[in-house]
Design a protein around this nucleic acid. Structure first.
Lengths: 143, 143
DNA sequence: TGCAATTAGATTGTACACAATTTAATTTAA
DNA sequence: TTAAATTAAATTGTGTACAATCTAATTGCA
């Protein structure tokens, strides 16, 4: 039953379910993030800002695996929403320091329910979720 | 050490490594797909077309988890490249039938090396890859 | 029959995502 | 010490992604 083109079948790919799952899971966040008036990418950026308060664009990009081409407009949007401020560093004017505002910190409490709500939409067993977490981190290290 | 905001830390998310891994792995395809002059999304669309030869936009979208908003421009691009043709169905004019061309089929042989080359860039053990494959399909079913 | 509901694609608008290039600041090394 | 190299962001251009809306074809049913 095997033919030479089997390796090109969608069902034999590892990348495709990764790509599709990521999209579908991110979509699950939408109704809950809509309540906070932010997108998924803005949400993960805020996660880093909530934890660290202040951070360069470059460093933020290293956390999120995103470059300035994505982050510059995204951070301008977050600034417009009043969630962060953007200012050049005094020590090194090349660096742009992003700081979370009081309003940004206030959003953290509203966001607290999001992970729970999303988990409620995804009926993956705890053991599978843990195993997946481990494997994804392993994969992340070798790409 | 635990605090009430732990659930909002990037490191405690399952979705984030999924999102980041998907992006990083898709990026690995780029140099090899550049040789075929197609993008990753175009590649997975061609995978379905290579296997099925003819297909409605709707059905193709069900395979790829993409809607007409994404597929319409993508298929127009593939048509411009000469890899597929697009034509309304005679039986039901609402349906647009996508068909792979000879040139499209010829690309299949050039693509044959892609999965191997990408696998060569990702040093994940075979057992882990298999386990990840199973878990992603399990996750796909419950989102 | 004939009109409302449904369906398939296309379109519009917003938001990433990233490669490639540009600009400005800083560092380095001759 | 100053010109070259490096660095951090911003910009530009292309290509997804997707929600919401629109259009046209078909179906269902009163």
């Amino acid at each position: 039953m095997a033919d030479k083109y089997d390796s090109l079948k969608l069902e034999n790919q590892l990348c495709f379910p990764l790509y599709a799952c990521a999209k579908e899971v991110v979509k699950k966040y939408k109704p809950f993030l809509d309540e906070l008036d932010i997108t998924y990418t803005q949400y993960i950026a805020m996660m880093v800002m909530w934890e660290h308060t202040k951070m360069n664009v470059k460093e933020l990009g290293e956390y999120l695996f995103l470059d300035s081409g994505t982050l510059t407009p995204l951070l301008k949007t977050l600034e417009k929403k009043g969630l962060v401020t953007r200012a050049r560093s005094k020590e090194d004017e090349r660096n742009l320091v992003v700081s979370v505002t009081d309003e940004g910190m206030a959003l953290r409490d509203k966001a607290l329910e999001v992970p729970k709500k999303v988990a409620g939409c995804i009926q993956l067993e705890e053991a599978d979720a843990k195993e997946l977490y481990v494997l994804l981190h392993k994969l992340m290290k070798c790409v």
